[in-house]
């Protein structure tokens, strides 16, 4: 990826690696250079970060009370309190 020649499609394609910190330094620099001048990609990267953060909130879904009661009972029965 050469800074002046970076296409938005390429940014999107390597974004998972970029967010994982797995992009080689040169490509990372080229991508960040592109972000300085491309509003669409900047918004896309921000949106992806927000979306990932929101997906992390899935773990806050409710567990059905009957299930919770059952596993808590198992926990209580099998471990010394």
């Amino acid at each position: 990826m050469i800074p002046d020649e970076v296409q938005c499609r390429e940014v999107v394609n390597v974004l998972t690696d970029y967010l994982d910190g797995a992009l080689p330094a040169e490509q990372r620099a080229a991508l960040e250079q592109h972000l300085l001048t491309c509003e669409g990609c900047t918004n896309y990267v921000d949106q992806m970060r927000t979306s990932i953060g929101l997906t992390g909130r899935l773990q806050e879904e409710d567990v059905p009370q009957a299930v919770m009661d059952k596993v808590l009972q198992m926990f209580q029965d099998r471990l010394p309190s």
Binding site: Q7, R9, C38, G40, C41, N43, T50
Partner: peptide, 13 residues
């Protein structure tokens, strides 16, 4: 070629 054909507006949330 290869750049956004549709705008990507910031999310106003």
């Amino acid at each position: 070629s290869g750049h956004w054909a549709q705008p990507v507006p910031a999310w106003e949330l």
